[in-house]
Amino acid sequence: MEARLDRIPRGETLRYLRYRGGELGGESLAELDRCETLLLQTARPRLVWRLFSLEADGTLAGTDYRPAGEDIRAFLSDCDSVVLLAATLGAEAEALIRRAAGRDMAEAVILDAAGSAAVERVCDIFCGDLAETLAPRFLTDRFSPGYGDMPLSDQRALFRVLDVSRRIGVTLSESALMIPQKSVTALIGVSDRPQPKRAGGCESCGMREDCAWRKEGKSCGSN
């Protein structure tokens, strides 16, 4: 399954830009078009994934990695296997966004939002492919380090197990943040039973108390 990016969902980009329904003139639309095109031309999406069976204590078989926290255990309670995924838009897209900030902040904020929408799109396409490949088995949503009570430091273990830096060129900063920033890591459970939609909901989110979207009565999983 190759990383693919066919389009950048406009609605998602606008959501990241906190668009609240004001006037969206021709100039803004043209700017959005232009930025999306630029990003699609520049991004070199890549991903690496691997399927592991789960041992009784939650360790991924053949590795020394046991995902941390209660939330992930609950999340995978129905699953006998898990897919580890890391995906990125690549360093060129990162440089494009960074460099825009020194030239035109309007472009920079759009590219930044569109970049977030784009990497999610890469993951969505992958999950669609994965569901087909693993059918008739069922997949959970994506659960990432930093969700719920899973610490960001799980990122390091996940990076070692998937050999992420060598395989797709994503690195970790000293504080375990991914660079390029437009990158995603996730655990996806595999089960014999249909899985409810969970990771996108506010219940499992560590930011639920402080979330700006929630304060406005929305969620980051809805438009």
Partner: peptide, 18 residues
């Protein structure tokens, strides 16, 4: 003010700033 009221959004604010 227009930004606060939601009449324009972030890229437009940045364009104006530019």
């Amino acid at each position: 003010e227009r930004y606060e009221k939601g009449e324009i959004f972030l890229p437009q604010l940045m364009k104006a700033a530019g």
